[in-house]
Each structure stands twice: as C-alpha cells, then as structure tokens.
Design a protein around this nucleic acid. Structure first.
Lengths: 340, 340
DNA sequence: CGGCAGTATGTAAGCGCTTGCATTTTCAAT
DNA sequence: ATTGAAAATGCAAGCGCTTACATACTGCCG
C-alpha cells in the first residue's frame, strides 16, 4: 500500500539519489571517497527510505562478517555472564559483534551450534573448555575458523586456551579447608564425562586429600547437573546417608547454594553442622547467608583477554598462544572447624 | 596446504558427486526429489568434503532465515533467563533459531541491536516491554519485520504483547503487605523513564497506598539501575536517612536481594527491623535468608506463548492479538508486621 | 590550449545458494 | 518397438552487496 512493497535495497537508494550503487556503497563504507554534495544526497536518500544494508549480501561480497560466536554451556545462571559481558565489550572495541548461544551442557547441541555459527559466517569462535570431539576440531580447521577455549587452561590442548588451572585452584581451596581438621568430606560435582573443568576440580580435590594425609578414595563424589535444585537434592542425600560428611565441596557456586538450601531444609546449620564450599565466586556467593567460601575467578579479565586473543587470531592468522590466569581462594563464612 | 584452499561450496560438492548444483541443493532441502543412488553419492561427497551450507547465500536466495531475534535488557542476571529459555525451546520446535543480544537497558543500544538483527535477516523480533521510540516501530514496519513485546501486557500498545499486568501485580503485592500495618514505606525502583515495567510497578504501589488509606505521595521512590550493589546502596541510604521506612518495596528481586545485603551490612534484621519485597520470583528469591516475598511471574509460559505467537505472526502475516498472563503474590519470610 | 595528474563516478563481475523452467531419462502401457 | 506421462536432473537467472577496472570530469602546468 504505502511506500515500497519491500524493504529498500542499495539499488533503491541509488535510484533515489540519482547515483550508481557503487557510489552508495562507498558512501557507506568509505565516505571520504565520495564528494560532499553527492554524499549528502545519498545520506538523505538513505534516511528517507529507512534503508539498512543487508548483512548477508555484504557478507557474500566480502567474505567477512566481523562477527564472532560464543557457545556457552548455559545462560540460566550467572557463571558465564560476567566473563561474556567483558568478552563482548572488548570485541566491540575492535569492531566485532558477538553472537551467543548455549549448548545446555550437551555435546551434540554444541556441535549443532558450532555449525550454525560457522554457516552464519562467524569469523571466530569462543568455546568453553576443551573437552570435545576431535572431529569437531577437524571440521573447524577445514572451515578455517579460529577457535579459542576459555574457562580452562591447558597448554597441550588442540586449541589455544585462556583460563585458569581448575585443578590447582580446587586443590588450593580444598587444602585450605582441610586444614581446619575435616576428615569426612564429600563432593557434589557436575557430570565430569565431557567437562574438563568438572574433572579437573575433582582431581584437584583428590590431590589435596592425599597431600593432607587422607586417601583420595575417601572423597565421595556425586555427580549431578549444574542446577540449584539438583545441588540441594544431592546434598540432602549425602547428609541423610551413612557416614555423613562434615565438609561438602561443590563443583561451583550454584551447586553450593543449592547445598545451602538443602541444609536449611534439613535444619542443619552452616557452617556449624557442615561446611560448604563453591567455585567461581559469582554474585550469588556473597548474597547467601553465610557467604560462600569459594574460588575467585578473574571473569572479566578472562573475557577481555579472550576477545583480544581471538581478534588477533582472526586478523593475523596467528595461532595464538593462550594464557593462564590466576585464581584465588576466598574464605568466607560457610566453612568452619568440624564439630568434635 | 592440505585439502582445499577454502571451505567447500555447493559447487565443490556438485563436482565431487558428478551432478549439478541444483541437485545438491535439492538433496539438502527436499531429499525426496532426488533418486536414491544420486542422493547417496551427494551425501557422501558432502561428508567427505565436510561441507556446511552457507547461510548467507541461502538467505539471499530465499529471503527467509528461520531466525528470530530477541533483545533483552540484560544477561547479567536471571530475570529473563528462564523465559528466554522457554522461548527458544518453543522456537526450536517450530524450526526456528534464536539470536539473543542485550541492550544494557539503553535505548540507543537497543535500536542498534534491532538494526543489526534486521540486517541479519531475522524473520521476527522479540522485545521486552513496549516503551520505545515510535521511529523504531516505523522502521520495523517498513522493514516488514513482525515484532512482539513480552514481560508486559498492554492491549493498546503499538505492537502486540504477551505478558502480565505489572501495575496490578504490584498493587496486589503492596496491598497484601500493607495489610500487616506498615505506614512508612519506600520503594527502590529501576529507572522508570524508558521502562514501562518499572513505571507500572511504581504506579501499582501508589494505587495500593491510596486504597489502603495512605497517600500515594508518601511513597518515597528512589530509582537506580537493576544491580545488586545499587540496591544495597540505595537501601542503606534509605535506612540511614530521616523517616526510616518499615517496608521497602523493590522493583525486582535483584534489587531486593541487594537491599537484603544492605540490611545485613547495617546490622538490621529482615523482617524484624524492616520488611523487604521483590518482584519476578527468580531463583535468587528462594535462596536468600529469609526467602523473599515477591510476585511470581509465569516466565516459562510467557516464553512459550511468545514463541508461538511470533511464529504465527511470521508465517501467517497475522497481526497477533497478544495475551495477558496471570501473576501471583508469593508470601515468604522477608516481610512481617512493623515494630510497634 | 593540449595533456596529464588526480579525483569522482559508473560498469559489471562475482560471492554461494535456490528455483522456475527446460531437458533428459525412466518405464509402463500399448 | 513406440509413445507419452512422470520422475529426475540440469540450466541459468537473480537475491543485494562490494570492488577492480574503466570512464568521465576537474584543474593546472608547460
């Protein structure tokens, strides 16, 4: 009815301004190539027509999208939020746009998302951790898409990574808490099968056990999904079963907060009846009562560096060296000496 | 060095399989049009080449992406997470992919994202609330992109919306808590200027004040950003100022949790010294101690319905009627009668 | 005043895919 | 065998943009 039957194209703008499409294109991408008067005519045509360049068409023409994709395991909690935020801010500085999707901690879903992002022309990809099928790495390599892993660091992995040493971080935390005298300890972890971070954290806890005169086998580990409710349930099972622990290490803050809720539901006091620790130091950790003893991870720094590194990989075709960041233990109210 | 210098294209596959590109394309999009033997040859060529169709090229050819975009104010907390999750699950059922981006509660950022999503060929858009520049709506209309608003419901808005009545929800909550006898009440709200949800919640609280024999002007409102720390600071200012309230209504759960942290920092007990309420009923609300009295919002239902509606708008070019959902007050430990 | 930079603009060839239409193949019925 | 309808495949245009190259204008120098 009204104006145009379809959204305006470069061609429409060109016609309206009485110039060629090339001129309009230049106006958009490199204005100084165009004389002032024509530029004005073109600009006003663009404005009155409400023209937005078609991204796909531009992509086809230049084979670059200035877009990077990130696939995170979940958006449901804040674990990746802060880091991702910093990642995207830094990308923005470099003129890139971020596309995010989540895999729900499932390998096939992740693979699907990777393909979707590649098909959409992502210039580079950020993945979490490095545990995944070799075939996926092969695919990515064939597609010439640079990939960077974050939230984990492993100099020997197939792809460069920016992150911290989950194993030694968990070891440090465990050692410190064991120092208070705990001997009956359990751990609530995420499923470790395809999750290097979960696996490393368990290992770290085990190592700490041994270094503190306990047996690694005495660490009873139960694996659940990263979810507050599952954390609460697992905790309750743990505490109502035989050989009740005095210390429950949790794979991350979300599980730990779940455990704390579980404790409340059982009428147990934290830390008097049982000590609980988390991992990540997300906002949640400081909001619960008592506040959570956890491992503080440099989320923002990690996101920022990841963006820098990835952009570098994209633009200079370098392979990127990866970088290990420091994490540190934060002692708060959720741990205490065990009851005698 | 290795295989191909560049990622394989349809053409490469066609050549490898000894057929035309048309056949390969049909193999991908409508396999039953192709005879079994050729299909096998094509499929194996695709596999050995590691071919992924180029999304942009397909988009150009068919002018449809089966992608919808959603722009939410923030990913930093869980406010939109659950609803968005349901939204994307439902979209998936209908064969659509979701692209998410966040505006950081800033109008220009949102506009930028809208354009980016449109440029990327989103078939439809989900926005939060309906408060935005008319020019943006005009633009969207010219681009022929269906838009749906969520988290708010207003039958008279420029675009169809799926959500609840923020005003009456807040009125119900406030009325219920005022019934306990509070007379000195304050509210910590998000900035209401370009946020209809915040504005309606304030209005709802005011209406409840009047209906309960208080003056709407007596509701002291302080506006901050949706952020735990800001909530804590605002709360502390409120409580250390003159005319200290016995009830602090918060615009959402995040602010309320911030307020609770503020109370802890001041050494005030909730709800004995002061009652606090939230809005949204995100996970956080049940994790803090005491648990938060708040308004429960049907996040998942809203997300699901929004997806259905939007798909319908896209596929049938209907205008969509919108739908109002019910919310309800959840009384928990964070409120009590005021001290006498 | 011819000619030559230099600047501004236009022309047209793709980028990788889909799809209407034309062409070839297949195969059952004569 | 012959034929024709149906099934399978190929051809080629075109989706909206960029960009190398060609062309058309400026002045300005000799």
């Amino acid at each position: 009815m009204s104006d145009h039957p379809a959204p305006p194209t470069l061609d429409d703008v060109a016609r309206a301004a009485g110039v060629s499409t090339a001129t309009v294109s230049r106006c958009l991408n490199d204005p100084k190539m165009v004389s002032a008067p024509t530029r004005e005519r073109v600009d006003s045509a663009i404005k009155t027509l409400g023209y937005t360049p078609n991204f796909a068409a531009r992509f086809m023409a230049v084979q670059r999208t200035f877009t990077v994709g990130a696939i995170i395991p979940t958006m449901e909690n804040a674990i990746f939020a802060r880091g991702l935020q910093a990642f995207q801010e830094e990308l923005h500085h470099h003129g890139y746009t971020l596309l995010v999707s989540s895999s729900a901690y499932q390998a096939e879903a992740e693979e699907e998302q990777v393909r979707a992002l590649v098909a959409r022309g992502a210039d580079g990809l950020l993945l979490i951790g490095y545990d995944r099928d070799q075939a996926l790495y092969d695919y990515l390599q064939r597609q010439r898409v640079p990939v960077l892993a974050a939230w984990s660091f492993d100099p020997d992995a197939a792809i460069p990574s920016i992150g911290f040493d989950n194993r030694s971080a968990m070891r440090a935390l465990t050692t410190q808490v064991l120092g208070m005298g705990h001997t009956r300890v359990a751990m609530i972890s995420a499923h470790s099968a395809e999750n290097d971070r979960a696996r490393m954290r368990i290992e770290g806890a085990r190592i700490a056990m041994e270094q503190n005169g306990l047996s690694a086998d005495d660490l009873y580990v139960v694996e659940v999904s990263y979810d507050i409710n599952e954390g609460a349930e697992a905790f309750k099972t743990l505490m109502t079963g035989p050989n009740r622990p005095s210390l429950v290490l949790c794979g991350n803050d979300v599980l730990a907060v779940g455990a704390m809720r579980g404790a409340a539901e059982l009428g147990l006091s934290v830390p008097d009846d049982v000590s609980i620790t988390g991992f990540d130091d997300i906002e949640l950790a400081q909001v619960v009562t008592p506040a959570l003893t956890t491992v503080h991870v440099p989320h923002r720094q990690m996101g920022r560096l990841a963006a820098q590194q990835l952009v570098d990989m994209i633009e200079n075709k370098t392979d990127g060296a990866g970088k290990e960041l420091e994490s540190h233990v934060v002692m708060r109210g959720s741990v205490a000496e065990p009851r005698s």
